[in-house]
Write a protein that binds this DNA or RNA. Structure first.
Lengths: 131, 131
DNA sequence: CCCACATCTGCACGCATGTTCATATGTTAG
DNA sequence: CTAACATATGAACATGCGTGCAGATGTGGG
């Protein structure tokens, strides 16, 4: 792909179906890509969780409120308690939130500072995206 | 939701449908939540983009390869050129990547360091998630 | 014990989205 | 000019996923 490349290095069993310009660079890139399992864990992990507006609201509520029970989270975000509980299950499973039980009550809070960090970067990106 | 709260502070037009425990805290949380538009921009922005395995692969390819044309990105990630181009359109629209044109060739690269930062945090989360 | 309460869970539906297919668009070579 | 090339784009389909609904589970009070 750089200026010295032999343009049109056609590879693959069906040459017309797989084109590339800079074979060595493509191979180097492929070798550095993580295993598919890790890619899935990233995509379906915190990124996937933060890619939903209601889960974002939940997490931001926890950032502000510290620790909140399910019904207060539902009230804060305008979600049903069922949807809230579903969402929290996912957040628990990915270790984004932790739960403290007190009798019938379940209080949720953020497990670590990663959500805040991620939000900071994303907001920074939005702010500077107009350059 | 804290120990001093009046439990069962029922509010709303349909009282049975909206429960909360700590009214003042819920209100404070609601007041701090960003506008719906900002929430959507976050969810559909970098988080949404990174929540897809193929787009993750594309971005990681750019992290390693620096600048790559569409067909090399497709070859690196194992995606079709059409799917690659579609994905790049989204990444362009959200200012995650930039494009340099040279004749028929379009070379893509990351626009800033935000993707790297986000990936660092997400990987950190995965690594420490087992604590 | 029964009943109330708070939350969790499973199933499935409706909606969202990534990819395929076909074509459009822009650049270049002969 | 025509044809080839690289990429972009639109429509639609197949797949994925968030939420509603119903019920299950666990805790606590009388």
């Amino acid at each position: 792909m750089n200026m010295r490349a032999d343009v049109g290095d056609v590879v693959g069993l069906d040459a017309c179906e797989l084109r590339m310009v800079d074979g060595p660079r493509v191979r180097r890139v492929q070798e550095t890509l993580p295993a598919p399992e890790l890619i899935e864990e990233l995509a379906n992990g915190v990124f996937g969780l933060l890619a939903d507006r209601n889960r974002l609201r939940l997490l931001m509520s926890l950032l502000e409120g510290g620790e909140l029970c399910v019904c207060d989270l539902a009230a804060s975000t305008g979600m049903s308690e069922s949807a809230t509980s579903h969402a929290l299950r996912l957040l628990r499973a990915h270790r984004v939130v932790k739960v403290r039980r007190d009798g019938r009550m379940a209080y949720y809070s953020l497990k670590d500072g990663h959500v805040r960090l991620l939000l900071d970067v994303a907001l920074e990106h939005l702010r500077h995206g107009d350059e």
